[in-house]
Amino acid sequence: MHRPPATAPHGDSRRVRRVWHRVLASALASLCLTGPANAADYTALPGGTLLSVLAGDADRNPTPVAAFAMRTTPVTRAEFAAFLRTHPQWRPDQVVQVFADRTYLQDWSDPGGAGQALAQSPVTHVSWFAAQAFCEAEGARLPSWLEWEYAAAADATRTDARSDPQWLAKILGWYARPANTALPAVGGAANVYGVRDLHGLVWEWVDDFNALLVNPDSRSQEDADKLKFCGAGAINLKDRENYAVLMRIALLSSLDATASTSSLGFRCVRVASP
């Protein structure tokens, strides 16, 4: 990148102006490249209720979910490369340690994302902080677990297909697929809301990824646990048949916000358009 010398004097207005011209040019260029034609596709999900697998004793009733709009597909490698061009501080050769560990985009041959193979495959090896930053840059945010689970409960015709053993078995089948093959492109079959690839392609970050299970040791350390947490005790998992979703919770709960894996991607949500 055009990194100016760090020793430049304070308030060198000519240099500042040059830098700003470059910023402006790159912003304009990116607007042209990613104009409305390529804008991310969001679809509206109406509000409703969901009996979350995380529902505990305190909330046996379904939890209300407010309306929101969700990206129809996970963020692709091409989309993430475009983000890096306008936000170079997130390039793997520039990102700070506190936001991403060494696994961040480790499968990218070029740190700026040029010449990406598999451009339409979901981006993986992204930290939670980087996923948040991407979503914020398009006026969105990561979904909460509840929003993700709400969207992912649907199949092609029903908003909640989770009581159908055949559907559960189909989702579970994906987890038997070897993980050492390249990820396919996004764009699987749409569910009833028009959202794709919630199952069968990648795991996905959620905003509250690290708070889904409070403490795996809670049964063995009753007293310590009471001191460790405010409010009610451990969360009792509902719907123990839904292994596929429970696996996601276990995976997300095991991660640090700077970590990434080869099968963990993300998508964003934003407020529903009026």
Binding site: R3, P4, A8, V19, V23, P88
Partner: peptide, 10 residues
């Protein structure tokens, strides 16, 4: 929103 890190490095 997209200010690169180097823009303010001076």
């Amino acid at each position: 929103s997209g200010l690169p890190a180097w823009a303010a490095a001076d």
